[in-house]
Design a protein around this nucleic acid. Structure first.
Lengths: 343, 343
DNA sequence: CTGTTAGCGCCTTCAT
DNA sequence: ATGAAGGCGCTAACAG
């Protein structure tokens, strides 16, 4: 194992160049106070020897890793790559690396993620939390570095955050009601506890305030934000005994599930949107690539990712002194074929 | 910045427990030779103080990071998340963490990736290289840790590898020819240099050996494996002056581009597969979610990811002594609606 | 069984 | 402008 070309150290360079390590250190860090001549000479040797500083040794000393963690649910849901991509662009621009930490939906793992991030000694953490507020609070407090939250409504958590001005559910439900749907179902993930402004809570409230029937049979909760959950939901609705009570619309937690749901419905001979209109959340790229194209509420993944990194980097610089910032974005409904036949 | 809850160190624990740090070290590493009583007592203190070892300090010492890098092209192409997911499962099982490094297609960046991985002091690197053989060789040799290659045919590179027994192109072209297509086009990425067994080379050879016309106008090369490239290809073919010479089939480098291509063709009123049959490569999940469902040659992303990690971990253990291993998988053609109307 | 010591590779005063 | 020395947090001999 040690026969692999071992990394050259700053000492070796110093020795080879006949200078002290501190001089080499100054050079690789562009520190002032090195005679141009020696700088040039040593730089050449550095180049020749292929020396690159051991980042871990460096950060052990400086306590700076130039690295931020992005805790996500499942990399296989395109929503996260889209967000991560945008976040990475900004991070890179500032000389930071973005490290993804997957916690496949198990909300109890969110705490593990924080611990992991602590251990890795990243400079900051971006989270898209699923936990209930109390747990989340504990998580954030356990973090030994700044945290930036995405998509969280609670206001009293010691972290910067980016969120929407209102739940995606509001736009989705408004839309379905406006186009005259009467029996609107809900398909989504099962949370430990639904936040007051969660998509599901909003769904329930919207039904009430428009005097639509709230039928427990019209709610299907799966374990993950996946195609699979959508397929299962389709079979579930189809298996309802009371065929007259089939939903005529479904508001879906997320686009992946919505896409699975549509797939499942079509397989069962249900027409979308004629028989059942479907609205998702996230507006992932694939919305326009399936048939029918999926109506969705954009949760602004790329903007969120970008802003989260910006907030976090600012916080890393300024420290916890300044007041926590909260950026709010306006969600957008994008109407496509899965909810209205003719646009 | 330093007002954030600072991490507690092994010294603090040792002091608080009234033992030497080495004892604490032995305990957190489950090393033998600690009296159960003290172990119990100190463990409790560790728990109370919330101590977790600084992984960077540890690896500075042990030269082991329990971390492997996966160098990928673009996280937004679902092929990579699928592969990364599988790789991560195996890595986690062995106590390793998987770190993704994106090098958005710029093949010259592949070298940068190796350097980056070196700097990060990961224990090994998995690559899906795009570079031409000579460059690739240089890259692998620059690595200071074991490398495992995915999808490379060259045999003389000092690295373990997982690859297919034959190019995906063989299966794709066989299929298109068998179903009687005469004017088969190619859409793909532009490489610095096409390897002999690359998809494009195989495409050309297949045309020759079946005495089909090789028309330069039937080749469209884009910069990336993206939807966008597919859309552009569709417009390109449509804009050909010689309408009688439109292709009746397209072999596409990758599924993303194939999906974009189909989308573009449908928008232009071209029927798929009646007018143009389309075959992709990778067999990403989305193949079955679009309409028409995409015929594709599976490049076995999850198996590749899994095996690559296994090979790499074995190599990390054994070192460079043992001969480099090469695992070969049989590619599979999955026929769907984009190439034949009735299955 | 437990403590002492000596670095891992780097940065950072403090001298020179 | 450069060198010498100390230490970041941890592990790994070597003593006791």
């Amino acid at each position: 194992m040690d026969q692999f070309k071992s990394k050259v150290t700053i000492d070796q360079v110093a020795k080879a160049a006949g200078v002290a390590k501190s001089t080499v250190s100054r050079i690789i860090n562009n520190a002032p106070g090195v005679k141009p001549a020696t700088k040039m000479r040593v730089s050449k040797i550095i180049e020749e020897m292929g020396f690159t500083p051991n980042l871990m040794a460096r950060s052990l000393k400086t306590n700076l890793r130039k690295q931020i963690a992005l805790a996500i649910n499942d990399i296989r849901n395109p929503y996260y790559p889209e967000l991560a991509w945008a976040a990475e662009q900004v991070a890179k621009q500032h000389g930071y690396r973005l490290v993804l930490i997957n916690h496949y939906g198990n909300p109890s793992d969110e705490l593990a993620v924080v611990r992991e991030a602590n251990d890795m000694h990243v400079d900051g953490i971006i989270m898209l939390p699923l936990s209930k507020p109390k747990t989340l609070m504990a998580e954030v407090k356990k973090a030994s570095v700044p945290v930036c939250l995405i998509g969280v409504y609670e206001e009293d958590i010691p972290a910067d955050s980016v969120a929407l001005t209102r739940s995606e559910g509001v736009l989705a439900m408004e839309h379905l009601i406006r186009i005259g749907r009467q029996r609107i179902a809900y398909v989504g993930r099962h949370y430990q506890q639904f936040r007051p402004r969660s998509r599901f809570s909003v769904y329930q409230k919207a039904l009430e305030s428009s005097f639509l029937k709230r039928d427990p049979a019209h709610v299907f909760l799966g374990p993950t934000a996946s195609i699979q959950t959508g397929l299962e939901a389709a079979h579930y609705f189809y298996s309802l005994k009371d065929k007259d009570n089939l939903p005529d619309a479904v508001f879906t937690d997320n686009d992946m599930t919505a896409i699975g749901l549509i797939q499942g419905l079509l397989n069962l001979g249900v027409r979308v949107p004629e028989d059942i209109a479907v609205v998702g959340v996230d507006d992932i790229n694939w919305c326009t690539l399936i048939t029918p194209k999926l109506t969705s509420v954009s949760s602004l993944s790329t903007e969120m990712g970008r802003i989260a990194v910006e907030l976090l980097l600012k916080r890393i610089e300024t420290g916890p002194e300044t007041e926590f910032r909260r950026v709010e974005l306006e969600p957008r409904l994008i109407v496509r074929e899965s909810s209205v036949k003719q646009l």
